[in-house]
Design a protein around this nucleic acid. Sequence first.
DNA 1: CGGTTTTCTGCAAACGATTGCGCAAATGGT
DNA 2: ACCATTTGCGCAATCGTTTGCAGAAAACCG
Lengths: 338, 338
Amino acid sequence: MIARPTLIDVAKAADVHASTASRALNPETRGVVSDTTVARVLAAAKELGYRPHPLARGLRTDTTLTVGIVVPDLENPLFPPLVRGAEAALGVEGYTLLIGNTDNEQEHTEAVISTLVDRRVDGLILATAELGSGVAAAVQSEGIDVVLVNRESTDGSVPAIIGDDHIGIGMAVDHLVELGHSAIGHVAGPPVLSTGLGRCKAFKAHLARHGLSVDGRIEVADWFQVAPGARATSDLVSRNPELTAIVAGNDLLALGALRALNDAGVSVPGDMSLTGYNDMPFVDLVQPPLTTVGLPYREMGTMAAQTLLALMRGEGVEPHVTRLRPALRVRASTESPR
Amino acid sequence: MIARPTLIDVAKAADVHASTASRALNPETRGVVSDTTVARVLAAAKELGYRPHPLARGLRTDTTLTVGIVVPDLENPLFPPLVRGAEAALGVEGYTLLIGNTDNEQEHTEAVISTLVDRRVDGLILATAELGSGVAAAVQSEGIDVVLVNRESTDGSVPAIIGDDHIGIGMAVDHLVELGHSAIGHVAGPPVLSTGLGRCKAFKAHLARHGLSVDGRIEVADWFQVAPGARATSDLVSRNPELTAIVAGNDLLALGALRALNDAGVSVPGDMSLTGYNDMPFVDLVQPPLTTVGLPYREMGTMAAQTLLALMRGEGVEPHVTRLRPALRVRASTESPR
DNA sequence: CGGTTTTCTGCAAACGATTGCGCAAATGGT
DNA sequence: ACCATTTGCGCAATCGTTTGCAGAAAACCG
């Protein structure tokens, strides 16, 4: 455990003052130092294996070269790609990611965010679903830039990167209509989440566009999970035996639907077509492989990171809300009605 | 963006010197300050909303209260629970996690580790599969404690938390034998990974224990992925048509096997029983739900964190290698042979 | 060649905390 | 009442950088 060389060691080795060494090492200020001393300092630094101490630098410059990312649940397969995308984009600029899980709890969310703020992250990426709207503003008032991902702020004051659910649901609906379906139901996610509510609204709008009825054909699941999806599906089909297709609010709900339909002896896609949403990993491996709508989560992460980088550089960001285009993934859980 | 209060602000408000305020705020040194001043300082700190500056403190004390965790691929569903477990355990002690992805590349791994070391993490959790063995030693020589997880060091010099694959594979084999199988094959993971090799060895040992033959009944997949698993399974069954059961080296390989068997018109579990390994999320949702062996990944994460905390506190850690007991999850992909 | 500008480098003060040391006051013992 | 001890607190140095300021040396200009 030998001590690391400090800037002063480098300066001594190059026979200059620490301040000169600092300037020579920093590309920004290198211009004011003569070429020969720059070379000497660089050589000395290399020779000694000098690495600047991030804490000392941060203390002086009030930057940490870290950004925090807050996700509701890292075990939800949506978020790892998002985190990785962000990590990759930030890494090339020298930033490192601090992660925080909120377990979908409001209280925990605020605790996590304040830890990150206390650690003086330079920026914050929030992927949490529910949030007192004041939190983002509070963070910004500390001088920390914020970007939302997979969620938009109610007043649009915070830049956000989100998937375009209206288009995405439209893709699923159009696909089913093209196959010839007209009695289409919807297993909706919880309306307290913007994704749950937004997709449900989109479903209604698109059915209306096709002149199809939604009366009583929407059943809300309490949570984006398999079991609530199964429960909601049972209710939905027992109430609407005429249905030939179901659009689920996300893949987990679709998997629940699949289970419920199997249990009820309804074959998919023979008796009932089914679409999911998100294109979660491995939904291509269930039987039948699920037709779903894929969102570019990794790209959302990189875009959030890039937006944040722009903000931190002090550049203005336009437009505030970026909607990424989803893609329909047609697999085997949908076919024309009998 | 109002400036945060510093220790000096608190000291002034409490009408004491900064050093006194520091001692009053730190539970360790609080004893040397009189009770009345402690109360005054605490009140002032609360009043002003004082939060210590982590960089300033870190610079002085040479600690960052951060721990790095290096994983090969956060999108692999094994790792998020591990990360979360570690995060939860570290969080209660005030530590924050820095994450690093290596993309399974040796070069990238070293780069990631050195960024974390440069950032002066207090400890490091390594979940990377392949690693020049010198790396851990190099990190330790910088005064940074290291714990391995899901991997053990060749010389056992670094504490490690791993699943007990010998027992786990034994559980799968015993289960199949109890069902009446005797012609059992193995789709093995890549032998360059300790998990691939170890499980294959365990498979041989357990078959031998039951007096069963393994001749030609092992096929190696190039990588722990679905496609290689399918390829290896095709080869395996075409070479050994007598097989009635297959033990796959992990769940992804099992899913590949499932696909290959489906394509070949072999029904699971009717014609062929199949076990996976890891109990990945959602493998209970494929058709048929996969019988597999579950490892407590989240607990591995928390144990790694606790071990690391002990190391950082300067406590000795015994034993060096902790093997966690897996659990068999019997689902529908296994049944007695016809 | 004198004076002005430019170029380079060093000095020292930050950034915000922690901590060894020493001094005063308070306490205790006889 | 006097000395020894303890207690409580302030002083100042320190961690490793960055950066405004100033001064010396060099370059330039007419």
